[in-house]
C-alpha cells in the first residue's frame, strides 16, 4: 500500500535519514523503533509529505507521491509528537475545526465528532477547554483530531510521551482497536519497546538514520536465538568485576542495571559457572541469577550496542 524506496534526507551536510526502504501493507500495524535522534520523525514527516526527501521515492498504491502529495494527504492521518490543538478552545470545537479543514460534510460532521470522542473516551468532557485537560487527555484529543476524516493510514509519532500509565494504556487500546476493528493501517513510532511489542505486527529498527533491522517480532528475536541473557546480582559490584566479566569468553555485552549486571553471551557457553568463578576470584558472592528470554530491547542492544533510551 505504502512504501519508501531508498529514502534519504540531508539537513545541510548532515544526513538525517539514510536510504530507508520500508513498506506498509493495508490493515497492518508497523512499528518504527529507535532512540531519540534516530531519524524517525524526519522519516514520517517525509512519508506524510511535510518534508521533501533529498533523494529516494515514496509510493502509495504504486504511484509516487513526492511530486503530488495531495493523494497521500487524503489517505493519511498524522498524530504529531507535540499537542497540536487550540488550547483556548474546547475538545468539541477543536474537533469541529479539524473536521472542517478536512472538509468533512456538514451532515456527518456532528456524528463523526461524537464517534471519535467515543473512541478516545472523552465524550463526557467534550465541552471543556483543552487547557484544562491533563497531558494524557490532551494526547487523546490529539489522536482524535487525526481521525476526523477516517484516514486509511494512521501515522503516530511517539503519541505517549510524558503521560501517565492509564492514559498510555487507553491510547494503546484506541490504536489497537483502530487497527483491528476498523482496519486502519498504523505506523507507530516510539522509543518504548514494550508499546511496539504490544501493538505491531512488524517492526523497523532505526539508528543513525538507517534501518538496521526489520521484520516480525519472531524474526527479530531470532537474531538473538544464538544468545542468552543473564541477570546477575553480586554481593558487591565494582568496575573491576564488570571488566573481568566483559573479558570472559563468549560474552557479547555487559551492563550495570538497577537490578544488577546484565550479560548477553553465546547461548551454548557455560557462562554461569564462568561468572561464579570470576566472582569468587575477586572474593565476591553471586547472590542471585536469572536466565532471560531475549526481548526486542536485547535485539536493539545487540544491533546498536546501546539501549533505546540512551
Amino acid at each position: 500500500m505504502l512504501e519508501t524506496i531508498n529514502l534519504s534526507k540531508n539537513f545541510k551536510d548532515k544526513k538525517v535519514v539514510d536510504g530507508i526502504d520500508m513498506y506498509l501493507e493495508q490493515g497492518e500495524s508497523v512499528g518504527l523503533l529507535g532512540p531519540n535522534g534516530a531519524g524517525k520523525s524526519t522519516t514520517i514527516s517525509m512519508i506524510s509529505s511535510l518534508l521533501k526527501p533529498t533523494s529516494g521515492d515514496i509510493k502509495l498504491g504504486g504511484k509516487s507521491i513526492v511530486r503530488n502529495p495531495s493523494e497521500i494527504r487524503d489517505v493519511i492521518g498524522v498524530v504529531p509528537q507535540e499537542i497540536a490543538l487550540y488550547e483556548e478552545l474546547s475538545a468539541y470545537e477543536n474537533l469541529k475545526f479539524f473536521g472542517e479543514i478536512y472538509k468533512v460534510k456538514k451532515g456527518v460532521l456532528e456524528n463523526r465528532i461524537q464517534e471519535v470522542l467515543e473512541m478516545v473516551g472523552l465524550k463526557e468532557r467534550q465541552k471543556e477547554l483543552i487547557k484544562t485537560f491533563s497531558g494524557g487527555m490532551k494526547r487523546r484529543i490529539n489522536i482524535a483530531a487525526a481521525l476526523m476524516h477516517k484516514p486509511q493510514v494512521l501515522i503516530l509519532d511517539e503519541p505517549t510521551v510524558g503521560i501517565d500509565p492509564q492514559s498510555r494504556n487507553r491510547i494503546l487500546e484506541t490504536v489497537r482497536e483502530l487497527n483491528e476493528s476498523h482496519g486502519t493501517t498504523v505506523l507507530y513510532t516510539s522509543h518504548y519497546m514494550e508499546e511496539v511489542e504490544q501493538l505491531c505486527n512488524r517492526v523497523y529498527i532505526m539508528d543513525h538514520g538507517k534501518v538496521i533491522a526489520s521484520g516480525s517480532k519472531t524474526e527479530l528475536l531470532s537474531i538473538l536465538s544464538s544468545e542468552l541473557t543473564v541477570q546477575v546480582q553480586l554481593s558487591e559490584t565494582s568496575d573491576h568485576i564488570i571488566d573481568t566479566i566483559r573479558l570472559l569468553d563468549h560474552v557479547r555485552h555487559v551492563e550495570e542495571t538497577n537490578e544488577g549486571i546484565r550479560i548477553i553471551s553465546k547461548r551454548d557457553a557455560n557462562i554461569l559457572s564462568a561468572i561464579v568463578l570470576a566472582a569468587e576470584k575477586e572474593g565476591i558472592q553471586v547472590t542471585h541469577y536469572q536466565m532471560e528470554t531475549p526481548s526486542l530491547e536485547d535485539v536493539f542492544l545487540h544491533l546498536t550496542g546501546k539501549t533505546l533510551r540512551d
Binding site: S48, R73, E82, A84, L85, F98, I101
Partner: peptide, 13 residues
C-alpha cells in the same frame, strides 16, 4: 510552533 500549521498543511485546506 505548536504544530497546528503542519496539520492544516496535511488537510484539504
Amino acid at each position: 510552533v505548536n504544530g497546528i500549521w503542519n496539520r492544516m498543511i496535511l488537510s484539504s485546506v
